[in-house]
């Protein structure tokens, strides 16, 4: 366990020093800060636009970080042979992969935390600048709404699933292929709803049950997206949060188990 933590810390350190990750986070923070200006374009909706843009930026930049790091973590260590040194130490290969994944998750958590703080700062500033009563009359949703954290939390779980997929794919395919497949999974994961309701469009029972089956086997990534609900002040129940997060955790493990076995069996040439 301590070894896994050590490896994770090293991944986090590498990521924090990576200019690309910095750039992604700066972009997101910049977007959150610029959002109030965009908000002025739509009268009466400025707070909504700030929330929409900030959460979208969190999601997008998080995705970028996860794919960018996820496909490179294991693949790069193998390709650059830095893994040779590490695996000659008293660590098992699965500890190495788990450590890499934990590091990825930690990096994601850090990035999301920074972006969330930026979002709340901007929202707080907007509330103070415009005067809270005026805003409150526009929307019944509080400006610095703690419920936004629910959206951020599910974004984290969603991207952690995507990261596990990226890591899994990168244990046996090239980085480019892994990146393409991961992005494909991200898109396909968002069409779960469409697949499931195909019976309203297509008559063939075979096709519809195949599509529905597929939609349940694939992680339904769209279900992790409660940004709109949270921004509009619609309730997101605790049960929904727990079940969604739990299904995310199951999928993370489902991606990690093959990753561990494949990496353990692999010859590192």
């Amino acid at each position: 366990m301590r070894v896994i933590c050590t490896i994770a810390r090293q991944v986090l350190r590498g990521a924090v020093r990576n200019r690309v990750v910095y750039a992604a986070m700066l972009l997101a923070v910049g977007l959150a800060v610029a959002a109030p200006m965009a908000g002025r374009l739509t009268p009466g909706q400025d707070v909504k636009v700030v929330k929409d843009l900030s959460l979208a930026a969190c999601n997008l930049c998080g995705l970028f970080v996860v794919v960018f790091l996820g496909i490179r973590l294991v693949a790069r260590e193998v390709e650059q042979r830095t893994v040779d040194t590490l695996l000659s130490k008293p660590i098992r290969r699965y500890e190495f992969v788990l450590g890499q994944y934990c590091g990825l998750a930690a990096t994601l958590a850090l990035a999301l935390t920074v972006m969330t703080i930026a979002m709340y700062v901007v929202l707080g500033a907007a509330a103070w600048w415009r005067g809270v009563p005026g805003l409150a009359s526009v929307a019944p949703v509080p400006v610095a709404d703690p419920a936004l954290l629910k959206a951020v939390l599910l974004i984290f779980v969603q991207l952690a699933v995507v990261g596990a997929a990226a890591l899994c794919l990168s244990t046996f395919s090239s980085p480019v292929l892994a990146a393409v497949s991961t992005c494909g999974l991200y898109v396909a994961g968002h069409f779960g709803g469409e697949l499931r309701n195909l019976d309203e469009v297509v008559d063939s029972r075979f096709v519809t049950s195949l599509a529905a089956g597929l939609s349940y086997v694939l992680p339904d990534l769209a279900a992790f997206d409660v940004k709109a609900a949270v921004v509009h002040g619609q309730p997101v129940t605790a049960g929904y949060m727990v079940l969604t997060a739990a299904s995310g955790a199951a999928y993370i493990l489902a991606f990690l188990v093959p990753a561990l076995v494949i990496f353990t069996r692999r010859d590192l040439l």
Binding site: Q10, R13, G14, R17, N18, Q80, R81, T82, D84, T85, S88, P90
Partner: peptide, 16 residues
């Protein structure tokens, strides 16, 4: 724990 290994053309994490 009781051995050491220097790989051929060794490389490390170059950011640290």
């Amino acid at each position: 724990r009781r051995i050491g290994f220097l790989p051929e053309a060794v490389r490390f994490h170059d950011t640290c």
